[in-house]
Simulated assay, not measured.
Amino acid sequence: MTTVLYSRVSTKDQTLEHQRIQAEAAGFRIDLEIADHGVSGVSTRLAERPEGKRLFDILRAGDTLVVRWVDRLGRNYNDVSDAIREFMRRGVIVRTVINNMTFDGATTDPIQMAVRDALIAFMAATAQAQAEATKEARRNGIEYAKRPDAPEKKYLGRKPSFTRQQYDTVCSMLDMSSGVSAIAEVTGLTRQTIYRIKHDREGAEAALASWAA
C-alpha cells in the first residue's frame, strides 16, 4: 500500500515544498509525491492536469491519497466531489492534512454513508465558495490599488509578511472554524498576522495585490 501526496500550486507566490512540509509535520509518511505547478483548480479538472491525471493511473485499492485540503483536488463543487467519489470507488483512501479528514468506501452502513457523502458535498461546496470569495477579494484589492486616491499610489506600505499561499490557507482554515493556534502551526505565521488577516481580509488582499503589481 502506497501513500501518495498530491500537491498543486497556481501562482509564483506558492510553493510545493510547503505542502509537503505540512503533510510531514502532521505525521504523514509519504512514499510518493506528485505535483502540478501553475495549474488553476478553478478552470482545470484534476483528470485534465499533467500530473493530476497520473493519480487515476497509479492509485490502487488500499492506497492513500493525501492532500493539504480538498481544494488541491479542485475549486469546483462537481469536480471535487466526483474525484473523491471515484477514488473511493476504486478503494483509495483520501485524507486531508488540514482537519485530518478521511474519506473511504469501506463502510456499508447507510447512515454512515449518508454522513460521509454529506461531508464530501459540504467540503466540495466550501472549496468552490472559498475560490469565489478569494477571486472577489482579489478583484476588489486590485481595483482599490488602481484608484487615484489609493494610499498605495504614494506609498505601498510595509510588504506583507505572508505569501499568497499562506493567505489562502488562513482564509480556508478560518472558513472551517479552525483555531488561530492550529492555523499558525500549519502556515508558520504569527498569531498577530493571522488576526490581522481575520479582521481585514480585504485589506490583506489589497496589500498582496499592490506589491504584486
Rank of each mutant, 00 (worst) to 15 (best):
V94C: 09
V9L: 02
V70L: 15
S40E: 08
V80C: 07
T193V: 15
K198P: 00
D109M: 03
E86Q: 10
S161K: 09
Q22R: 05
Q166H: 05
E132D: 15
S210R: 14
D149R: 00
R90H: 11
I183N: 02
E86W: 06
G38Y: 12
L208S: 01
G179P: 01
R49P: 00
D104P: 00
E205T: 14
L156E: 03
E48S: 13
R72F: 02
D79P: 00
L208D: 06
G188S: 03
F87N: 02
I30E: 04
R68A: 08
P151W: 12
Y144L: 15
I93F: 04
A106S: 12
P160M: 03
S181I: 11
V115Q: 05
S81G: 02
R75M: 14
I98F: 08
G179C: 06
A35E: 02
L5P: 00
E86F: 10
Y167S: 03
W211C: 06
A114H: 13
E143L: 14
P50H: 13
R138W: 15
R49K: 10
I34V: 13
L156K: 14
D79L: 01
M113Q: 11
Q14H: 04
E24L: 14
K153Y: 10
D109S: 08
M123L: 11
A83T: 11
D104V: 04
T108D: 15
A129G: 09
F87Y: 06
K146L: 15
V115C: 01
G52V: 01
D109N: 15
D31G: 06
V170M: 09
A145H: 03
A212R: 11
D57L: 06
C171L: 15
E143Q: 13
V67Q: 03
A118R: 14
T126M: 14
T126S: 13
D104S: 09
N100V: 07
Q128K: 12
A35W: 03
A127W: 10
S178D: 11
P160G: 06
N99Q: 11
N140P: 00
A209H: 02
R139E: 10
H18Y: 10
A121Y: 07
T3Q: 13
Y144E: 13
E136A: 13
T15I: 05
T3N: 03
L5Q: 01
M1E: 06
S81P: 04
A114Q: 14
D13K: 04
S161R: 08
D36P: 00
S81Q: 07
T134H: 14
L65H: 05
G62L: 09
M173D: 05
E17K: 15
Q128V: 01
D71Y: 03
I111V: 13
W211D: 12
N140L: 15
A150T: 02
Y155I: 02
G62R: 02
I183D: 04
L46P: 01
M176Y: 11
A207W: 06
R29C: 02
